[in-house]
Simulated assay, not measured.
Amino acid sequence: MAAKLKPNHLCQEWIHSTEEDSDGEAVFRPADYEFPLTRRPRDFFTLHADGSLIKGQGTPSDSLQEDQGSWALDNNEISFRTQDEQLQTYQIASVASDKLVLKK
């Protein structure tokens, strides 16, 4: 990734597009993307400009659990911290207005 990312490039709701994942990368699309139907709820995260985060994950009962937290961008690494989880850091492989790719 050549240019340094700015936080405002990422501020939106990103939904996990599991169909596009590879062994080493996870793909996320904006909330208005036309995803194929799936039986399970899709994981998502919403990044706000003030550094706050809403993170949603599917549960074993096929419901969606939402947690609040914070996020930060350092060079091309993004970090998430929620009340229930430890700090998670991911390398950003690529980002565009319609696609975010994180290295697993």
Rank of each mutant, 00 (worst) to 15 (best):
R40I: 12
P41R: 08
P41A: 13
R42P: 04
D43M: 09
F44N: 02
F44M: 04
F44I: 03
F44G: 03
F45H: 01
F45A: 00
T46L: 10
T46A: 11
T46Y: 09
T46W: 12
L47I: 04
L47H: 05
L47P: 05
H48C: 05
H48Y: 08
A49E: 03
A49C: 05
A49N: 07
A49F: 06
G51Q: 03
G51H: 06
S52P: 06
L53M: 02
I54D: 04
I54E: 02
I54H: 03
I54T: 07
G56C: 01
G56T: 00
Q57I: 11
Q57M: 11
Q57V: 07
G58N: 10
T59W: 05
T59K: 03
T59R: 03
P60T: 00
P60G: 07
P60S: 02
S61H: 10
S61N: 08
D62N: 12
D62K: 09
D62W: 14
L64H: 06
L64Y: 08
Q65H: 07
Q65I: 03
Q65R: 08
Q65N: 03
E66H: 05
D67R: 04
D67V: 04
Q68S: 15
Q68C: 14
Q68I: 12
G69I: 02
G69F: 04
G69P: 01
G69K: 01
W71M: 04
W71V: 03
W71P: 00
A72G: 04
A72I: 01
A72K: 02
L73H: 11
L73C: 00
L73Q: 02
D74P: 09
D74C: 13
D74I: 09
N75C: 15
E77L: 09
E77I: 01
S79F: 10
S79A: 09
F80L: 09
F80C: 06
F80M: 08
R81W: 05
R81H: 06
T82H: 08
T82Q: 08
T82M: 10
T82P: 04
Q83F: 15
D84V: 09
D84Y: 15
D84H: 15
Q86R: 12
L87D: 13
L87C: 15
Q88P: 13
T89R: 14
Y90W: 14
Y90E: 06
Q91L: 15
I92M: 09
I92W: 11
I92A: 13
V95W: 15
V95T: 11
A96H: 14
S97G: 09
S97D: 11
